Amino acid sequence: MIGTKGVFLAEDTPFNTGECSMSLSHDLDSALQTTQNWISDLMWRLRWDDRERVYQALIATLHALRDCLDRDEAVFIGPYLPPLLRGFYYEGWYDGRRAIARNRNSFLDRVHDGVERDPAVEPEEVARSVPFAYSRAPRCQGRRSKSAA
């Protein structure tokens, strides 16, 4: 049987019931709406009108933050993000790696890299506009790379 979105469903699966389907649909709609709200809020904070650019800046900032923090700190942030953003936050992350962005400048460089070095994007402004990101990022300011030690 083909579900409403072209997904194949077996006749006897729990996903083939109207009740579960409605709950799943509600959960997905809610997760999408929460993510859209975050993007709208960031659009307002940055005074930008391009949703795609704002989304790209948001993901770039979340990845830079994640890569600035130690493993336990990075994991601690996840539950505070909406479900869809949580997935994007962890995308491409390997929990066995060491923190990549070791100071404020490397953190901001990672944000700028994530927006393809767009000269119209000020990475610090973007980072300060993402809820809680910049307040957590300065933790990496005091770290020194092994070559500097």
Rank of each mutant, 00 (worst) to 15 (best):
K146S: 10
S106V: 06
L28H: 14
G96I: 03
R104C: 09
W44F: 12
S129T: 04
L62A: 02
N103T: 05
E11R: 09
R97G: 10
L84Q: 10
A149G: 13
S40H: 09
I2T: 09
W93L: 09
W48L: 10
V7L: 13
S145R: 15
R98I: 06
T4F: 05
R53Q: 11
D41T: 03
A120L: 12
R51F: 08
R104E: 11
A127G: 01
E52T: 13
E11N: 12
R86W: 12
Y89T: 01
P82C: 14
A127K: 00
S106L: 12
A57Q: 04
D95C: 14
Y55E: 13
H63E: 06
V115A: 02
I59L: 13
P119N: 03
L65G: 00
A64Y: 01
D67F: 05
L81Y: 03
L46F: 04
V130R: 00
A120P: 04
S21Q: 12
G114N: 03
N103F: 03
L32G: 08
A133G: 02
M22N: 13
S129I: 01
R128Q: 07
K146I: 09
L9G: 00
I77Y: 05
C68Q: 01
G87K: 07
Y55S: 11
Y134T: 01
S106Y: 06
A10E: 12
L42Y: 02
W93D: 08
L28S: 12
A120G: 11
A148M: 07
P138V: 03
A127M: 01
L65Y: 00
R128V: 02
V115M: 04
A99G: 06
E73T: 07
F132V: 06
M22S: 15
D41H: 02
G6E: 06
P83V: 07
R104Y: 08
G6K: 05
E116L: 12
S106Q: 15
T13V: 10
S30K: 15
F88W: 11
G96V: 04
L85F: 07
R45F: 01
A148V: 09
A148I: 07
L62N: 01
A74Q: 00
P123C: 05
L9M: 05
T17R: 04
F15R: 09
R144W: 04
S23F: 11
R66P: 00
S135I: 08
E122D: 15
